[in-house]
Simulated scan of single mutants.
Amino acid sequence: MSGGELIRRCLVAAVAVVLAALVPQVVPWRICDGPGCLLVSIVAVPLLVFGVALLAWVIMAVGRVRPAWPVALGGPLVFFALVSTVVDVPGIVVFFVVAAASYAFAALVTAEAPPRAWQVALAAPVVVLFVWSVARLLL
């Protein structure tokens, strides 16, 4: 895989998640209000994340990111690891920037171009952040 192809792969992944994440922003979501919505949120938020990842996967497949499924699965994990430990998301612009960067990073790590040692070296800090964020929530 050439350098230009790797850059195109990362850019398509970043644009795909931005387009997919715009859908919930455009559609008026008004399920319920108040503290009684906790149960609805527990079900709706994972479904929404799964829906955005599925839509991003389809957009990446149309954009010829091959294979697209590791990026669609790894992108939300990178995003969750960053948002829960390092990055504070005060607004929608930061949300989209972090989401695009997460998917671009996942596209870079899952590409065939870098050697396996580089893939492990790039993915290791994200795995540590993810485990740390989950451990903090559980403890």
Rank of each mutant, 00 (worst) to 15 (best):
V120M: 08
R116C: 01
V71L: 10
R116H: 10
E5M: 12
I7S: 12
E5C: 02
L139E: 13
V27R: 03
A56E: 02
R116V: 15
V109Y: 00
I42Q: 13
L39C: 01
A101L: 15
S102G: 09
P114I: 03
L47E: 06
P90M: 08
G34Q: 08
L122Q: 03
E112K: 13
F95S: 12
P90N: 09
V49Q: 11
L22M: 15
V94Y: 04
L122F: 13
G36I: 00
G3S: 14
V98D: 04
T85R: 13
P28G: 04
V128S: 00
L19T: 08
I59Q: 01
A123Q: 05
A121Y: 02
P76A: 12
V94D: 05
G51P: 07
A68N: 05
V15M: 11
V17H: 02
V12S: 03
G74A: 10
A117C: 02
V23R: 09
L54V: 13
A16Y: 03
A53G: 04
L82V: 03
D33S: 15
V83Q: 14
W69M: 12
V87P: 10
V12L: 05
F50M: 14
A123Y: 03
T85H: 05
L39N: 10
P24L: 08
G34V: 07
A72H: 00
T85D: 11
V87K: 04
P28V: 01
A81N: 04
A81M: 09
W118D: 04
V87F: 10
V131P: 01
S41R: 13
W69G: 08
V71G: 08
V131D: 00
G3W: 12
A106D: 03
L48P: 00
V49R: 05
L22D: 10
V134L: 14
F80I: 14
W69T: 12
